[in-house]
Amino acid sequence: MDNLVQLSSVTQAMRARDLLKSNGINSAVQRITASRGQGPCAYGLKIFNRFDEAISILREHNIHVIGRARGEIR
């Protein structure tokens, strides 16, 4: 399964990316299909390593992770 999470906006996704990068975790912002029931129009973060730790870091810094994304738009 892709390590792809949905954030609340593109700004938050970029904040999350920068935060993870400062902790040595690589990720990339991309347009995604939103979590179930939330329709299209969402941005997410594809996390390339240390996924569980990344989620903890984001939560520690009050960056709201809406959920796992349903799928990547390719």
Partner: peptide, 14 residues
């Protein structure tokens, strides 16, 4: 429109 949370008719809080 904000480009975020577009399925909701309510303005985002973020």
């Amino acid at each position: 429109g904000t480009g975020s949370n577009s399925a909701s008719s309510e303005q985002p809080e973020i």
